[in-house]
Design a protein around this nucleic acid. Structure first.
Lengths: 123, 123
DNA sequence: TTTGCCAATTACTTTGGGGTAAGTAATACT
DNA sequence: AGTATTACTTACCCCAAAGTAATTGGCAAA
């Protein structure tokens, strides 16, 4: 409660920013919410479910999420290769927050779109 | 509940993406949470409170938020000019969600940083 | 008369996110 | 022999987002 706004915002280690670097990433959010609904998934399953992500961005995003300990990766020594991705316990705790945002989005999209079109008319 | 994941994700009007376009923006989040704490603020007050945003990005961000109807702008015909920014009712409803994310960030930053450093060592 | 204030705007440059396409390893199938 | 599969990696390129720095307008105070 007694946080100093200025200090918080200037802090290079600001937790909010640390998190936004990941959560603000559209692909990361999509991966987390998708894993949150489907549980464990293989690479191509994620790739097809998300639909418009490229392989490159999926690889990059998964790597970042592993790095942060939000997603775990399990590789099977088989041919053809099999790799499974699952949310970690920490990752799971993020899902309800993202879902809350999604619900907010659903509830407010109409108003936002209307506001945008009104704004566009005036300008 | 019976949402089809694939359809949802391929939908160009997907609410989640519509919202992420704004919420995923680091500056927008900073502006909303700052206004959420301080109430009405003038341009320079926001500028100084956020600290490391440029005037340009603050202007651009405020414009986007107005466009979406999340922030209202009130201009006084005075010299030197005075402009006040306030969250709209819709904008206010977003604050607790963003604060929840901030709390999550605070609670999990330590773990994330540790995970990152462990990951860095291995690779 | 020069400076400062406030809220921008403009011009210019840089960064990097993200796309496409091709390549890779190792094996099984035809 | 040739092709498919899986989970990537690599190389190359583009464009929009964001940063920097200078400028504006109109008035008041030093």
């Amino acid at each position: 409660m007694e946080n100093n706004l200025k200090n918080r915002n200037r802090d290079p280690d600001c937790p909010v920013r640390t998190v936004l670097d990941r959560i603000g990433d559209k692909w990361a959010v999509l991966v987390i919410t998708t894993l949150g609904e489907e549980g464990t998934m293989r690479f191509n399953h994620l790739y097809e479910t998300i639909g418009d992500i490229s392989q490159k961005m999926l690889t990059v995003t998964l790597k970042k999420l592993q790095e942060d300990g939000l997603v775990s990766r399990k590789m099977y020594q088989e041919i053809p290769p099999r790799v499974e991705y699952t949310l970690t316990d920490t990752g799971v705790t993020l899902v309800p927050l993202l879902n809350a945002l999604a619900e907010w989005a659903n509830a407010n999209m109409k108003g936002i779109k209307k506001s945008r079109s009104v704004y566009a008319e005036v300008n």
